[in-house]
């Protein structure tokens, strides 16, 4: 694991172009303004976590990036594509082949087997031959630890298993970037760990990830950059160590106090689900 405090690009190199660039995003649902001017950059290979109280528009922000929602104001760029300018379905489809999305409620297709869920996208959208797609699907299932469930149906799997299949389904499209929308919020505590393990491995393999999450400790461990939003605006952002260890804004401190509570820095989800003591002194929570 890279040292938490070291920046991704050593000094002296030119700053790389962001993969995702959001500028001044405003989004309203009717009279309710949910995003009030969000600007954010995500560099290739970076893992960015977005934390904040419920209703601060975090999920809506993710949906804007993949074109499921259209902001009233602002620009969104993914690679070379101006997402907010896309009008035709073909353009949106081209975008969604590059951006993976994993939902809080897994949203697997209940009438298809696990294997067919993973094969549908590559065959229908990317036009790959079926046996090639199946081969890749089995490899992905192996990677998330569910190779033995290829013929099962989503209804027969536990929540954690379904979510791992959902991640594999997003990976099957071979995206440049994956968005995770509170993917562990609907799971039993025992199964949260298995999903976070998969995400950690993805991050370590260099996948660009943007996570909206309530798992503070996980965000602290795995992210390069953490963004704290409240009421539709970014309050504070920075490397995980700094945001969690030395939050500058009072509102950030108040939120972390509420979210982390008294049991500060005692647990972390290690790859084999054993409870490991987090080296707390690296963070020095100033509460």
């Amino acid at each position: 694991m890279p040292a938490i405090d070291a920046p991704k690009n050593p000094p002296g190199k030119p700053a790389p172009t962001p993969l995702v660039s959001l500028r001044d995003i405003h989004l309203s649902f009717g009279a309710n303004e949910v995003l009030k001017g969000i600007s954010l950059d995500v560099l290739p290979g970076q893992v960015v976590s977005i934390i904040g109280p419920s209703g601060s528009g975090k999920s809506s922000l993710l949906r804007c990036i993949t074109g499921l929602l259209r902001p009233q104001l602002g620009t969104i760029t993914v690679g070379a594509t101006r997402v907010d300018r896309l009008r035709h379905e073909a353009e949106l489809i081209a975008l969604r082949r590059r951006v993976g999305f994993v939902f809080q409620q897994y949203n697997l297709f209940p009438h298809l087997s696990v294997l067919d869920n993973l094969v549908l996208g590559p065959v229908r959208v990317n036009g790959r031959p079926r046996d090639e797609a199946e081969h890749q699907a089995r490899e992905l299932l192996q990677r998330v630890g569910l190779a033995h469930k290829a013929a099962a149906y989503p209804g027969e799997l536990s929540g954690g298993q379904q979510q791992r299949v959902a991640i594999a389904r997003a990976l099957a499209m071979q995206p440049e970037l994956i968005l995770f929308d509170e993917v562990t919020s609907a799971l039993d505590p025992e199964t949260v760990g298995e999903v976070l393990t998969v995400i950690r491995e993805l991050a370590e393999d260099g996948m660009t990830c943007v996570l909206v999450t309530h798992e503070m400790r996980f965000a602290a461990e795995v992210s390069d950059e953490v963004v704290f939003t409240e009421a539709g605006l970014i309050v504070e952002q920075g490397p995980a160590a700094r945001l969690f260890g030395n939050p500058q804004q009072e509102r950030t401190r108040a939120f972390l106090r509420r979210a982390l509570g008294a049991s500060l820095g005692s647990q972390s989800y290690a790859p084999d689900n054993k409870v490991v003591a987090l080296p707390i002194d690296r963070f020095r929570f100033a509460i």
């Binding site: 993949t66 499921l68 379905e89 073909a90 489809i93 081209a94 975008l95 969604r96 082949r97 993976g100 999305f101 939902f103 409620q105 949203n107 697997l108 297709f109 209940p110 009438h111 549908l120 996208g121 229908r124 959208v125 959902a166 389904r169 997003a170 499209m173």
Partner: peptide, 27 residues
């Protein structure tokens, strides 16, 4: 048919027609 299932299908890049034939109508 739950809206969220259709959202997931759209996020995979399925076109409206594919959405209808592969996900919406079977369900």
């Amino acid at each position: 048919v739950p809206e969220v299932t259709l959202e997931a299908a759209r996020s995979l890049g399925l076109s409206s027609r594919q959405l209808l034939l592969q996900v919406e109508l079977p369900l």
